[in-house]
Amino acid sequence: MSKRLLSIPMALIALSCLYPLFFALNNALKTNKEDILNRFGLATSPTFENFTQAWTRSHLSDYFLNSVTATVGAVLLLMLLASMAGFALAILRFPLRHLVFIAILASLMIPVQVVLVPFYKTVIAFGLLNTRIGLILSYTAFFLPFSIYLMTSFYAGLPRELTEAARIDGARFWQVWWFVMLPLGKPALITLGILNALYCWNDVLISLLVLQDKRTLMVGIAALRGEYTTNIPLLSAGIVLAALPIVAIYLIFQRQIVNGIATGAVKG
């Protein structure tokens, strides 16, 4: 009985999450006229015209490529660096190790907005403005502290004897990382990859700042809203197109996401 009672608020929460998706998809299938006349009703004569228009005339295809490049580049770089740093902080013993880890954790507490001006100046100073590599490095810089924290927690939970066995087997430190720690870190790395992919893909602020004469998908969609204030179906089609890869990633890797969120929370 209590389970049934509990299922009512759960269902309401699920509905509140699903409705925006349904709203976007439903409106994307309407014409602009139909949307004005009946915004909250079902699409009576569904059309894919809005998707075509958003993809081609609104240049979302170009923006999509920018987003994919920046996201894939940043995610791969973040996985590599976080795994190396996590291994070093969790396994190796060196002076000021704890201080370094605390400094990394402390940087998690600084909001992006606070450092935008010095960040922007740095991007210009390094000649990275309006470059995809600049955006990849920017994402890496901003999302690296959390990534290092996650990987350090994961590696700290692995038995220390594994590293020691590898060292006795003849592995240098980089070989311990490459042959033992990197493969063992796969569950955490998959989670990290997915979470960082979500952050990078959904970002507007950093990409708006770094890629000023190109656009990522999210910035492109935000611009759609500016240009076509009244064209809700076109905006909805853009949102659906942008959400599709993320929904697909989530559906494919949902088990790893849930497992990975628990990573670091519980050792062992």
């Binding site: 004897e161 594994l162 020691e164 066995a165 590898a166 060292r167 006795i168 240098r172 033992v180 063992l184």
Partner: peptide, 20 residues
């Protein structure tokens, strides 16, 4: 010397086998 330069092998209490 580093462990790998000592020509020794070690068996651990927890076995320490590489799970992957």
């Amino acid at each position: 010397a580093e462990p790998y330069d000592r020509h020794i092998a070690m068996v651990f209490q927890s076995y320490a086998l590489y799970p992957h």
